[in-house]
């Protein structure tokens, strides 16, 4: 399989021709969804769009995170980061909880709301083409090289070279290098990324760490909690038993009838609500 693949999108080169949009539709056999591609938005039938924002054309597609939030939140492992780079979807596992949609920091997974048996839909970085050694459909048709396909590491080098060659032009940053732990889709731009609709306030660390910090404590919690609660029960139960014995003996000594005391824990008899006065 070799190294991880990825895409580099350079907003300074995009002329908004819609070739990537059309190629994606064609490759995934998706029906037309808008009168013009610039008006379209991501949906269960559209996995990538070109938007006119901030005086630039910019693409929107699954970022294929290095540590994908969607894959980490899926209770049944229906989303998977493959060794080649794509985050793919195993339709036959999905239960339809839509946690991936809630959790994705880029708002990418879409749902087939109109179907009785719906699936999650999103870009899969043309995983089948990658296996065959071909680039993604969108990169293959891009006439300006705005979308470039390659090894993620080489694309990072390429992006750095472009930043070095035109330091006055570009925003000095590769979007996706560190965002939420890094993504397989990288962006370059000469206008601030927020103006392109990309959030720049995302955490540097992978988001799954946020929940893993809590989840990894569970085994310990179960063991410690079990022992602690068991211990408390043992102590309180024993104390009560001792008390009852003592009273019984005292009652025998003084000739009084023993007082009716509640049974130790575990009893479900109906007559032990006496102590509630």
């Amino acid at each position: 399989m070799g190294s991880k693949k990825g895409l580099l999108f350079d907003a300074t080169l995009c002329i908004g021709c819609g070739a990537c949009y059309q190629a994606c539709k064609e490759r995934n056999r998706l029906p037309p969804t808008a009168t013009h591609f610039l008006e379209d938005r991501l949906s269960d039938q559209t996995y990538t769009v070109v938007k006119k924002r901030g005086g630039r054309f910019v693409r929107q597609l699954c970022m294929h995170c290095e540590v994908p939030t969607c894959a980490s939140v899926c209770p049944v492992g229906a989303l998977e980061k493959t060794a080649a780079g794509p985050v793919i979807y195993h339709e036959e596992r999905c239960i339809g909880c839509r946690y991936c949609m809630l959790a994705c920091p880029f708002g990418i997974p879409k749902y087939e709301w109109r179907k009785i048996l719906p699936r999650i839909r999103k870009c899969d970085l043309c995983a089948d083409r990658l296996v065959a050694g071909r680039p993604t459909a969108c990169a293959e048709v891009c006439p300006t090289g705005a979308t470039k396909f390659g090894d993620r590491q080489e694309l990072i080098e390429e992006a750095r070279a472009r930043l070095r060659a035109h330091p006055q032009k570009y925003v000095p940053r590769i979007y996706g290098l560190e965002e939420v732990g890094g993504t397989s889709v990288l962006l370059l731009s000469d206008v601030p990324f927020e103006r392109l609709g990309y959030r720049t306030d995302l955490l540097r660390e992978p988001l799954p760490l946020l929940t893993w910090q809590v989840l990894q404590k569970i085994p310990n919690f179960v063991i410690v909690g079990g022992v602690l609660l068991g211990g408390i029960w043992w102590i309180t139960n024993r104390r009560q038993e001792v008390q009852r014995r003592e009273r019984q003996e005292r009652g025998r000594d003084s000739g009084e009838p023993p007082r009716d005391l509640p049974e130790p824990s575990g009893s479900s008899s109906a007559s032990d609500s006496t102590n509630s006065s």
Partner: peptide, 26 residues
Amino acid sequence: FDLGRPYRIWHPLVMWNPHSVMFEVA
């Protein structure tokens, strides 16, 4: 009602992802 594929509600029993809070919830 809420799950898109309610008949697969048992999937977390056999398809594990311990990194998911939803898995813990299930």
